[in-house]
Amino acid sequence: MFDRKIRAVKKKARRYKRSFEKIDVFPRPWIEHDKSYYLVDYVRLRKPIGSALFSDEEEVVVEAKAAYKGLYLFNRLAEKIQQDGHMRAQIDVTYFRAPLKMIDKHPHEDLAEGRALIESLLAYQLKYRETYRTFFASLKERAEAKKPISEKDIEEAVHTAALLDVLQYVMIKEIADNTKKIERFIEQMKKHELWESITKGQRVFYTQLIENETIMKEELSNMQIVKHENHEKMLKLNKEKLQYYKQKECKHAEKALRYQL
């Protein structure tokens, strides 16, 4: 059923298409008063340069405005999660597990400090990866089941986007605040002749963490995030902030829609 509706929406969208543009219809609709509404992007050179909102039936202004808010919030948050999180979620956890395994085989008291730091970083990275993958696994499952977007989807997108932002901030801060510990860890690994036992890529990884201290501190200061010592409180504050600003963006984006209702 959705396929037929999408074909009808694409037909409408072609009326507002400009030269060299491709039409992308987001496949999951928002249902408003038993009517399906779809978000459309007009893409040129792989970049969206315009948007519109259509139903396969006749659009009703009040319904369309409500539908656009839900479609915009969910789809733009999903894009943010993918764009911000894809590379970070792919970080190889063996960068953390390999030295931990080496320390377990050759325990030394002076490696305990470095071990604790690496364990903490590993926990953050695993949480980041799990959060990212869980969101997109859920998205894929609901898309395959052809389920429309719901308020629950928006809540999950807000939670995921905010949690990934918080995890990224906390992890970068943990590294930037502890470069001296990483330096000592490398020195102790060399002293115990363990440094060469991990791969060159893993050695480069830890060396770059030290070298990039200034860059990481600049990144922290530039992050648009609400900071709080309590991570649960920090997550709550950033969910509220994210939802507020995305709703503001939505109002501006609505004014730029090609098909004005």
Rank of each mutant, 00 (worst) to 15 (best):
Q208L: 15
V158N: 09
L209R: 13
Y169W: 12
K190C: 09
D153L: 02
Q168C: 01
I182G: 11
I175V: 15
G201A: 12
Q188S: 11
E156D: 10
I182D: 04
R203Q: 15
I215K: 15
M216A: 01
Y206D: 08
R203H: 08
F185Q: 06
D153V: 01
L194R: 01
K152Y: 11
T214F: 12
F185L: 13
T207G: 10
A162Y: 10
A176L: 10
R184W: 02
A162I: 07
D165Y: 05
I198F: 07
E183Y: 02
E193D: 14
D165W: 06
I182T: 04
S150Y: 03
L164D: 07
K200T: 12
A161E: 04
L164R: 08
Y206E: 08
K146D: 08
N178E: 03
I210G: 13
K152R: 06
R184K: 14
K173D: 11
D153F: 01
A157R: 02
I154R: 03
M216H: 00
A161F: 13
H159I: 00
L194Y: 05
V166E: 04
Q188V: 10
T214M: 12
Y206A: 10
V158P: 05
V204L: 15
L167T: 03
F185K: 08
I198Y: 03
K147G: 05
E155P: 01
N178P: 01
Y169R: 09
T199P: 09
K200Q: 14
E193P: 00
I154T: 11
L163D: 02
E183A: 07
L163M: 07
A145Y: 00
Q208T: 09
K180W: 12
K191C: 02
M216S: 01
E151H: 06
K152D: 14
K200C: 01
Q188R: 15
Q202S: 15
R184I: 02
A143D: 13
T179K: 06
K191T: 13
D165R: 08
E174C: 02
N178M: 07
T207L: 15
K191M: 05
E144P: 01
I149D: 10
T199L: 12
I172P: 04
T199S: 15
E193S: 09
S197F: 09
V166L: 02
I154L: 07
Q168E: 11
G201D: 12
E174H: 12
E183K: 14
M189H: 05
L209H: 14
E211V: 10
E211F: 10
T214I: 12
M216N: 03
K147V: 03
Q202F: 04
I198H: 06
F185W: 04
V170K: 14
M171L: 03
D177W: 10
I175E: 03
E144V: 03
Y169K: 08
E196T: 12
L194D: 05
Y206M: 07
Q188N: 14
K152A: 14
H159T: 04
S197N: 13
